[in-house]
Write a protein that binds this DNA or RNA. Structure first.
Lengths: 258, 258
DNA sequence: CGGTACATTGAGGCAAGTCAAGTTGAGTGG
DNA sequence: CCACTCAACTTGACTTGCCTCAATGTACCG
């Protein structure tokens, strides 16, 4: 279902119909806070188009500036930072509904790269209009800050995981969180959800070697807890997964969508 | 000079003079962006008092709500998260000028604890007035978002360090960053700055054991790169320290003060 | 002076890393 | 439709960075 695209891509495609914010497929999902008429109206004017990129394309690149902010409409991406010698730390798995580029907007230069892990469709917002939002639509400005605070909180979680947990706990923790996120976005069906990343990506996100990560995944698979094969995550025993992760907090609260 | 206090503490002390924002000792420091008259005036009305706490006191506690935001005026603190079994991840070393509690304000509940590492003096802001700021002083709201974005960026850095670097690199990286932060706050004199934390705190921040951290510190000391003893950091060879950390980015840009 | 809190050091073990071969599956072109 | 390529996943064997355990040292404090 997420095969390669037969379109040239990497540029905005005017031919294809653009989603009207009023009919946004994301907004009704459990993951998001309902939006007022006024807010939808504003978003409609705020949105300046859509962008489609193919797998492997860089949506943002570490060390550069960008004139746009994006919200991921469809597909999967990955946010990472690289060290000069090539080591890579995955900071975040990007799912639909996630806002991208706020950091670049605020700090000027991106501190990380965002890469499409599948073909991806993005809502485009112009950077220059951010200030309008602060002066004219304080509710939306507040939501923006809320999102930044939440992103920080999630990164903190990840730091706890990488800093304090052993390999099994880290993998279990990461898969459990991904599963819950997927569920809140309606991507889970019968315990299965698409998760089109590579083992390398997970390993780089957890600070583990690829080989070790692979062995932990095998262990979980053999013990009938989770199986992640062919870009699909199958959670057989969610309780065991949570137990393995040594934590038991459930769903994340709904968040504003921008 | 940072001995224990002989005052009861943990409560606001009306007797002692409160710093007027116009005469804020932090604002003129290199670390901060200059503030307009209008902004100073707003901050003066926004500030609702000061709080002094003694070493070891908890300024915020994981899992609770708080009615206040704080800016650290004087002293040192530490921000950490704990796992149910007692493992601790230090998220941040808090220096003067740092804003505390934004996450609690936005998300409702604090996801981490903030503890005073020395006696500490804080500016107090009422949570309830945050919304005023979004509706009436968009510049300040923007600054708030800016700070949240920067905090996220710094956490990302730390994640890269903990996830990808070996012990020596992590310690060097952390000490180099602390030194640069201290310098921008005018705390460095002759290559020395106060750093009143314990080795345990650094170890918990880097995801290393106390013993291993201690051995790395000894190595750096013997090699005349940095020495951290008696709550003082002495950087003998900053270039070597940066080299050891495998990175070479300099000072952080100035930031807004709130 | 005993107590408490940190720092330091040595010894031994294991979780996780590195190296080195496969295997599998999808895409591609003859 | 089969051979070839290439990227991703697996697995086994060996190595090591970092951990844990267990003392000991040191400084301050009541």
């Amino acid at each position: 279902m997420l095969g390669s695209m037969n379109r040239p891509s990497i540029r905005a495609n005017a031919e294809q119909a653009v989603v009207d914010c009023a009919a946004c497929p994301l907004r009704p999902l459990d993951a998001f806070v309902p939006m007022s008429e006024r807010e939808v109206e504003f978003m409609r004017s705020f949105k300046s188009g859509e962008l489609t990129v193919s797998r492997g394309a860089l949506i943002f690149e570490q060390g550069t500036e960008s004139a746009y902010l994006f919200t991921l409409l469809e597909g999967f991406a990955i946010r990472y930072a690289m060290l000069p010698d090539g080591r890579r730390q995955v900071l975040n798995f990007v799912f639909k509904g996630d806002l991208l580029g706020l950091q670049g907007e605020m700090l000027g230069e991106m501190q990380h790269t965002v890469e499409a892990a599948t073909p991806v469709r993005l809502c485009v917002f112009s950077r220059r209009r951010i200030w309008d939002l602060f002066t004219n639509v304080p509710e939306r400005a507040y939501d923006l800050t809320w999102l930044a605070a939440r992103e920080e909180s999630l990164l903190g979680d990840r730091l706890v995981s990488v800093g304090q947990m052993n390999g099994h706990e880290r993998v279990a923790h990461a898969l459990a969180r991904l599963y819950l996120r997927g569920r809140s976005l309606g991507m889970v069906e019968d315990g299965r959800m698409p998760l089109p990343y590579r083992q390398r990506d997970l390993a780089d996100g957890l600070g583990l070697s690829l080989v070790h990560t692979n062995k932990i995944l095998r262990d979980f698979r053999e013990r009938q807890i989770v199986a992640w094969r062919e870009r699909t995550l199958v959670v057989t025993n969610f309780d065991a997964l949570q137990a393995e992760a040594g934590m038991e907090d459930g769903d994340l609260p709904p968040r504003p969508l921008i």
